[in-house]
Amino acid sequence: MDGGSGLNILYAETLDAMGIDRSRLRPSKAPFHGVVPGKQAMPLGQIYLPVTFGTPSNYRKEVLTFEVVGFRGTYHAILGRPCYAKFMAIPNYTYLKLKLPRPNGVITVGTSFQKVYECDVECCEYAAAIIFTGDLVVQLAEGAEDQPDSKQLTTSFEATEGVKEVLLDPSSSDGKTVRIGATLSPK
């Protein structure tokens, strides 16, 4: 689940693994940004799918709209804010839990820290592989040529009054100092 995503995303690979024919896709309205670094993504289409959380004795089922994308991802799907709203779900990222209200009691969905770690490692490896594709390498190389030499950079901020110079480590002989405002209140 991704509380920062404004879409529910399903990867075409997942759709195929579920045995759902792509002819069920409806045309999608517009491209979106933020999933593929530096590029817009055009979905293959939209699909409405039922999603169920809980157990047979206490469950919640809703139909969600997914944008189906044709590129590879590290997850099967991304459930975003539309899912949170529809299920009235409350995430707790610290404990890796998602809670949904039901008349028979709260439904709690969770995972292990080990699984999250494995997913993060896979995601980082995949992101690194994307960065080193041909067109991004060219863009990075062009950007590096335009960057000024960091040794030549100087700051233009200079305080005009009320500055006090203080040794960072009075017991050290390196003489490194920091400049602070002398007119600051004790608070």
Rank of each mutant, 00 (worst) to 15 (best):
L184V: 09
D174C: 10
C119Y: 03
K176C: 09
E118N: 13
P27C: 09
T154P: 00
T65V: 12
N104V: 00
F157W: 15
R24C: 15
K187H: 14
L49P: 08
G175P: 04
T74L: 00
L98V: 01
I20N: 05
V106I: 13
F32C: 03
V51R: 03
Y95L: 06
M42R: 14
D169Y: 10
H33P: 00
Y117N: 10
D2W: 01
C119P: 00
V178H: 02
P31W: 02
R26N: 12
H76A: 01
A17Y: 05
M88G: 15
V69Y: 00
V138W: 01
S185D: 14
L100I: 15
A128R: 12
F71H: 10
T14K: 00
P103M: 10
L167I: 07
D120P: 00
C123P: 01
G143Y: 02
V63R: 04
R102K: 13
L98I: 01
A159W: 08
G6H: 03
F132H: 15
G162L: 07
D135I: 02
R26Y: 04
F53V: 04
G181K: 11
A141K: 09
T133Q: 14
Q114H: 04
V138K: 05
L167D: 11
A30L: 07
P50G: 12
L96M: 12
G6D: 11
L98D: 02
D21P: 07
P186M: 07
S57A: 15
G45D: 05
S57I: 10
A129M: 08
G34T: 04
L184P: 05
Q114L: 04
L98E: 01
N104Y: 05
S172F: 09
N92R: 04
V116R: 08
T65P: 02
V178E: 08
A128G: 05
P37D: 08
V69A: 05
I107Q: 02
P27S: 11
G162V: 09
V69M: 03
T133N: 10
V138E: 06
K29S: 15
F113T: 06
T183A: 07
L49V: 07
R81H: 09
L168C: 13
I131R: 15
T65N: 11
G19I: 11
R60T: 14
I131F: 12
K29I: 11
L49C: 10
L168Q: 10
H76C: 02
T52W: 06
I90L: 12
I90H: 11
G73E: 01
E122C: 09
S156C: 11
A182G: 09
G162S: 12
E145T: 02
Y11S: 02
M88Y: 03
R22G: 13
K61E: 15
R24N: 15
S112E: 05
P103Y: 03
